[in-house]
């Protein structure tokens, strides 16, 4: 007898939670020597050194690992939703201009305030992402009726290109120092995460994901087709608007704390779908946990590979994600 969907959801969630915990633990201990771990575990305090190890883990490694996990969870969940709403298993949360909007916001903030207003980068990136989606969605609604998906994708590409052009314009007029900061931002960075950021991002992801999950069956109907969904009792327009807005907020919140990290929102949902099928009741928790584990692991690699220098985490996600994705495509 085949397991019920409920049982599968619970089982998959539990095992992926296990995977996530292992990844978090490995990430937290990577960079600490065996002796240090022993000291911590046995509690045989060797004065300042043990305390220093604790400080390093608690004030630097833990918040960045947690932020990476939360951002990964948010991006992957948003990816599931966008792939569903746009009916394209290869859609990416950045497809409809969110990344370009966020980047533009961040670049504007960096060139206007420099490092004088550090939080400004996050605030402006969030506002940029949301306004990009607002613009795209506004265009799609204005053309309400047929061809919705195409309108969203085309408008997204055009709005994205527009915002990219403005961003490049600002970039070309800014100094070398700003350029470097912008470049790092575009490649994603968790290195100086604070608990405050973790908390903000975690609240956004929890609220957003819960709203989405409470509508998981509706997302299932939506991906079968608009007419079918309508005949099965769905208010397609209203549901789609809800999904788009919540997923955009989720992505915007993630982008604002982490920069534009590519491939997480594309590869994780797709891989989870290949493993567990397209049912969003199973897929949403799987993507949440899988995305968290993937990005936390990527951040750990970015931190360790060229130690004590840091690599941009976006480079790691793309370098590991792209070949895996190609393999999946070919195998399929």
């Amino acid at each position: 007898m085949r397991l019920s969907t409920f049982a599968r959801t619970i089982l998959i969630s539990i095992s992926l939670t296990g995977v996530l915990l292992v990844v978090l633990l490995i990430s937290l201990l990577t960079g600490t020597t065996v002796t240090e771990v022993k000291t911590l575990l046995t509690g045989s305090v060797q004065g300042i050194d043990a305390q220093k190890t604790w400080t390093i883990i608690l004030s630097y490694r833990l918040p960045r690992t947690l932020l990476a996990a939360v951002a990964g969870a948010g991006l992957a969940s948003a990816g599931v939703v966008f792939q569903g709403v746009l009916k394209n298993p290869l859609a990416d949360p950045y497809l409809i201009g969110i990344a370009a909007g966020g980047s533009l916001g961040a670049v504007v903030s960096i060139s206007l305030f420099g490092e004088r207003w550090l939080l400004g980068t996050s605030v402006c990136a969030f506002l940029g992402s949301i306004s990009a989606v607002g613009l795209v969605y506004g265009l799609a609604v204005a053309r309400r009726g047929r061809g919705y998906v195409n309108t969203v994708i085309l408008a997204g590409v055009i709005v994205g290109a527009l915002m990219n052009a403005v961003m490049l314009l600002i970039l070309s007029l800014s100094g070398s120092h700003e350029k470097q900061r912008i470049l790092f931002w575009l490649m994603g960075d968790f290195s100086l995460a604070s608990y405050q950021q973790v908390l903000l991002a975690a609240v956004a992801v929890t609220v957003g994901w819960t709203l989405i999950y409470l509508n998981a069956n509706r997302l299932n109907l939506l991906i079968v087709g608009d007419d079918t969904a309508s005949h099965l009792g769905l208010n397609v327009f209203r549901t789609r608007t809800l999904f788009m807005l919540v997923a955009a907020m989720l992505t915007g919140a993630t982008v604002s704390v982490s920069g534009t990290i590519g491939f997480v929102g594309l590869v994780v949902p797709h891989a989870m779908r290949l493993l567990f099928g397209p049912d969003n009741r199973v897929l949403l928790p799987a993507a949440l946990l899988g995305g968290a584990a993937f990005l936390a692991a990527s951040d750990c690699v970015a931190r360790v590979v060229a130690y004590p220098m840091e690599l941009p985490v976006g480079v790691i996600t793309t370098l590991s994600g792209a070949p895996f994705f190609l393999y999946l495509l070919v195998k399929k």
């Binding site: 019920s4 969907t5 409920f6 959801t9 999950y213 409470l214 509508n215 998981a216 069956n217 509706r218 299932n220 109907l221 079968v224 099965l232 009792g233 769905l234 099928g277 049912d279 009741r281």
Partner: peptide, 17 residues
């Protein structure tokens, strides 16, 4: 799964059969 979607009109946004 496809046939089970026919139960949607009798349930809310999230349900397990």
């Amino acid at each position: 799964e496809e046939v089970m979607m026919g139960r949607a009109p009798h349930h809310g946004g999230l349900y397990f059969e």
